[in-house]
Design a protein around this nucleic acid. Structure first.
Lengths: 192, 192
DNA sequence: GACTATCTGCCTACTAGTTGGTAGTTTTTC
DNA sequence: GAAAAACTACCAACTAGTAGGCAGATAGTC
């Protein structure tokens, strides 16, 4: 009870780590079984099909992300600081290698071979994130903090894409610092 | 002879299409077998291990890319036009869905679970592309055509990352037009 | 020209191991 | 004692990969 994690939670967090490592088709129930110390069949008891498990991973990931955004909205008044916090969050994750890729960004690259329910959740994440970034930019523009070329939405899409591309470059080069190199100038461009 | 493709070529181009669709672990020799009309064992005759096949796909992809760059260097004198051609190439590929993702960008997302020789080729592609973009930016700056904030290298890495991120967004949304929305303002930022 | 040898490309048939998933049973927990 | 959670023991399908054979083309040599 309380802070001791249940086996179902262990399965989900293990699956999340494995997805981040290599995507949907790179792991099996056997891999999870050997990590969490349960038989394959017991994992099927909690998540009958692989798509159930991955959908749960993505849904939980989205909930955590939306909770993080809500916390930012509560605690960080300045829109520029909100964007700094968003980028800084990922920079920290990549630097300490704790969580070095966005679950949904990885799954999006495989979206054509994903079960449909998983693909829908992944698409939903892109929409949610882009809508939040758009709203931050809109507010920043209204407050005179931002003066980017183009619309809020265009800048939000570009910001999100660049962050995803920077994750990819960090992974391809095997060099976390490239993430900061790429994302550092992003906000200068937007700020008034 | 000449333009009639060999079975080995068929295998490679089929594998390339399957990799673009969903990455290294999303396809099998059986999938290729059913497309090219050869038995699995015959595919193993041409490419003993899966890593041999994928390494060949990536190597060929890199050669084509470098040939394309060489052609640009020969035929397109203006560096801004060269960048326009690079981005326009991908916009066309994504719009007509012929080749809607960079082979190496997709494999890079899976790099942690890739055979090492394949991973090395993928990393090599990122280096080659970023070096070319850097050289284009350097020349544009020297010629007074570009006046970006930051160094040529920083801008090259950001350009590459944003193009990759734009591919990912197009795929996630299932909407090719987003690629253009994201990449259109990129060059305005760089141009003098 | 015939005879051999090698090579290429493909085949059938197989292997050992893995995949996601199921049936039925026992243990644990409230 | 019921329900939840775990287990053993399967399964069929699929995975990458191997062994060995065979037809046809090519090349060397007598």
């Amino acid at each position: 009870m309380g802070n001791v994690s249940t086996k179902a939670e262990d399965i989900v967090s293990c699956a999340r780590a494995l997805i981040i490592k290599g995507g949907y088709n790179s792991f099996s129930y056997a891999d999870i079984s050997s990590v969490v110390g349960l038989r394959k069949a017991s994992i099927h008891h909690h998540f009958p099909a692989k798509s159930d498990l991955v959908r749960t991973v993505v849904r939980q990931y989205r909930e955590e992300g939306e909770a993080g955004i809500a916390a930012l909205e509560r605690n960080v008044p300045d829109p520029l600081d909100q964007l700094r916090a968003y980028i800084g969050y990922w920079e920290a994750c990549i630097t300490d290698a704790s969580h070095p890729f966005c679950v949904c960004a990885l799954l999006a690259s495989e979206i054509q071979v994903l079960p449909e329910d998983v693909a829908l959740e992944v698409r939903g994440h892109f929409r949610t994130l882009s809508e939040w970034l758009t709203s931050v930019l809109e507010r920043g523009i209204a407050e005179g903090r931002f003066a980017p070329p183009g619309t809020a939405r265009e800048n939000a899409e570009m910001l999100m894409a660049t962050v995803h591309g920077a994750m990819l470059s960090a992974r391809a080069y095997g060099d976390a610092t490239i993430f900061g190199v790429i994302t550092k100038p992003l906000l200068d461009r937007i700020a008034a």
